[in-house]
């Protein structure tokens, strides 16, 4: 419980107010106000949970803690063409429905194992032209981008040096260059 509170506080600080449960919003209003996309509170929650399913909180921060949901919506709103935004949003709705149709519970009500089972099945499908695939693959891509460019990743896992101060043109490869997860 303590840990959950701590995580929630972290997200409040880094990712804004994305974690407020949608049920508190009677009209299913999103916490984000986007200029080019209309999004409901439950859609917002689904994207956040999907991101967290892909990169969960473990002993190290997950997607929500590093602000991936906000990044996904920001990129979708600002850097995607209108028709691609429509595919993403259409795919989101279809994803939610397909999940509920194929499972006893909805995506949001399911546990991580069930969610991953669905995602694994989805990615095994040969025909990836549908909007569901567009949504799932773009959400995944943006989640990974948010994570690998996050402050956590670039300070703890693969440190980014703002001021390297040096260049060496030829150094032996370090055998043990596996980074800390």
């Amino acid at each position: 419980m303590k840990r959950r509170t701590a995580i929630r506080q972290l997200v409040y600080i880094t990712g804004g107010t994305l974690l407020i449960p949608a049920c508190l919003n009677r009209e299913d209003k999103a916490t984000l106000s986007l200029t080019n996309i209309s999004v409901t509170g439950s859609q917002e929650k689904l994207v956040a949970e999907l991101a967290e399913t892909i990169i969960p909180q473990t002993t190290t921060p997950g997607a929500k803690a590093i602000g991936a949901p906000l990044f996904i919506w920001t990129m979708l709103n600002d850097c995607y063409a209108k028709e691609d935004q429509q595919r993403f949003m259409g795919g989101l709705v279809a994803f939610d429905k397909a999940y509920s149709d194929g499972n006893e519970r909805s995506f949001l009500e399911s546990d991580t194992t069930q969610r991953i089972a669905f995602l694994t099945k989805l990615s095994a499908e040969k025909d990836k032209k549908s909007d569901i695939h567009y949504f799932a693959s773009n959400a995944r891509k943006l989640t990974i981008q948010a994570y690998t460019n996050s402050k956590y990743f670039l300070t703890e896992v693969e440190p980014y040096e703002l001021i390297p101060g040096r260049f060496k043109g030829c150094v032996p490869v370090q055998k043990n260059n596996t980074k800390k997860a």
Partner: peptide
Amino acid sequence: NTRNNSDGYGSALKDNLAASEL
């Protein structure tokens, strides 16, 4: 460059992303 393996889900994906290869 370093290449990050981005396969899998959850902890497996996190481990893959952390283990970059040249």
